[in-house]
């Protein structure tokens, strides 16, 4: 495992742990999601260094575009939930529990 590999691996794992364990507000969950997608963007951009091939910029751009779409969808859900729930406490999302 090269240092480059290790760095994006650790970035993803730490932000995934934050996504799973941080259960207070929706906005911090969305930020953790963005951190995950950004670490994956960096990993895809650095892929030609590891594989020693020519740089192909379509894949990072696709990932960046779709992560931006996902973030905007998450923010719109944040706005929608602020009308009905308290967005600063994810424990309030308990209307549908079994």
């Amino acid at each position: 495992m090269t240092p480059l590999h290790l760095s994006y691996f650790m970035a993803f794992i730490i932000s995934m742990t934050g996504f799973m364990l941080h259960r207070t507000s929706l906005i911090s969950t969305l930020l953790c999601l963005e951190a995950m997608m950004l670490s994956l963007f960096i990993a895809t951009s650095l892929c030609p260094i590891q594989l020693q091939t020519t740089s192909f910029m379509l894949n990072p751009m696709l990932i960046l575009t779709f992560s931006a779409c996902e973030a905007s969808l998450g923010l719109s859900l944040l706005v929608a939930s602020s009308r009905t729930h308290n967005p600063n406490n994810l424990q309030n999302l308990n209307l549908l529990q079994c």
Binding site: M16, L26, L73, G74, A80, S81, H85, L93, L95
Partner: peptide, 19 residues
């Protein structure tokens, strides 16, 4: 409120799974 909650839960799991 129930539809919003359902969509938030769906979004969070699916986004985590796809990443």
């Amino acid at each position: 409120p129930r539809a919003i909650e359902a969509s938030i839960k769906y979004f969070l799991t699916q986004a985590a799974a796809s990443s």
